[in-house]
């Protein structure tokens, strides 16, 4: 499967990347997150406990199942308002 992954705010800066397409087999967003975190070094930021994520532009839990072609975003706690 192929997933569009986006990074925002502090994560975007730490990773030096605002997005990428990732190939692999992931049953949930958490699988994808673990796969990315295994790249080591700065990618450890994705193991932060208060990480938030969205699937196809909707806030969700990391336990959400993933399907081919979907868009996942990872970001730190939101701070608008």
């Amino acid at each position: 499967m192929n997933i569009q992954v986006l990074y925002f705010a502090r994560y975007r800066e730490v990773l030096g990347l605002d997005g990428e397409r990732v190939d692999g087999e992931f049953s949930t967003i958490d699988d994808l997150r673990a796969h990315l975190a295994r790249r080591g070094d700065v990618w450890q930021v994705l193991t932060e406990q208060n990480l938030m994520c969205a699937l196809n532009e909707e806030l969700c839990s990391v336990n959400k199942p993933l399907q081919d072609g979907e868009e996942v975003a990872f970001f730190p706690t939101v701070t608008g308002g």
Binding site: A9, A54, A73, F75, T77, V78, T79, G80, G81
Partner: peptide, 19 residues
């Protein structure tokens, strides 16, 4: 729940506001 993030320019440099 809304995806906004604040980055402040402070006297000691830029920093992301924590939730």
């Amino acid at each position: 729940r809304a995806p906004f993030w604040k980055k402040e320019t402070t006297s000691e440099g830029p920093r992301w506001v924590e939730g």
